[in-house]
Simulated scan of single mutants.
Amino acid sequence: MTAATFTRSWPSVSAWGAGLIVAALGAGAIVRADSGAAARGLGIGMVVLGVAGLAWGAAALSTGRIVLPRVALIGVITALAATAALIFLAPAHTSIIGVAAASVLLVVVGATAATHLRRGRTGSPADRTPRPMSVLGLVVAAAVVAVLVTPALGATQDAVLLREDGTVPVISHEGH
């Protein structure tokens, strides 16, 4: 197993993690009671970007290659800009942990797409053939992303629920 075979699935899994976090940040901006029109509009765009990231990751993993690298790179740059804009629009209700985790994962996807474009592999016959991936590499990627994404999603929810006094309500599940 080569290093390339071991890491080949990482951009796909990173896209899934980033997509989940970006969509969660966007959803938080949409549903928060005190969100203005700008925050809600940005939130809708972020949900769309998050879902697109999930779809791109699935397409890249199922084909065994980087698909639509230019589109992926544009999506990464747009998602990075949107998360940064959300921090400025709603700083008290945007999770810095969520933004940081999404940014790290987006950089992985963006660097892979940029490298792919730089090497000029857009449309060559070798690019259309699936390349082998390591199951162990996929498991490691999933574990790393889970370690980043799970706390980021929790922090995103906490930021959305943050009260004026700086506390987060405790949601009780009594009676369920």
Rank of each mutant, 00 (worst) to 15 (best):
T2L: 00
T2G: 07
A3C: 08
R8G: 04
R8H: 15
S9L: 02
P11R: 12
S12Q: 01
S12A: 15
A18H: 04
A18T: 01
G19L: 03
L20H: 09
I21V: 12
I21D: 04
V22H: 04
V22E: 03
A23I: 05
A27Q: 11
A27Y: 12
A27T: 10
D34R: 07
S35Q: 03
A39L: 05
R40I: 00
L42T: 08
L42E: 10
L42V: 00
V48I: 11
G53Q: 08
L54K: 00
W56Q: 15
G57F: 05
G57W: 03
A60I: 00
L61D: 15
T63S: 14
G64W: 02
I66G: 01
V67S: 08
V67C: 06
V71I: 13
I74L: 14
I74S: 08
A79T: 04
A79G: 04
L80E: 08
A84R: 06
I87W: 09
F88K: 02
A90D: 15
A90Y: 02
A90V: 02
P91D: 12
T94P: 02
S95N: 03
S95K: 04
I97F: 08
V99N: 00
T115K: 04
H116P: 02
R118K: 08
R119H: 15
G120L: 06
T122Y: 11
T122M: 13
S124M: 11
R128T: 10
P130V: 05
P130I: 07
R131S: 14
P132M: 05
M133V: 11
V135I: 07
V135T: 08
V135C: 02
G137L: 03
V139T: 12
V140I: 14
A143N: 07
A143Y: 07
A143L: 15
V144C: 02
V144A: 07
A155S: 15
T156W: 10
V160S: 07
E164N: 10
T167P: 01
V168Y: 10
P169Y: 11
V170T: 09
V170N: 02
I171V: 13
H173E: 03
E174C: 01
G175H: 11
H176G: 00
H176P: 00
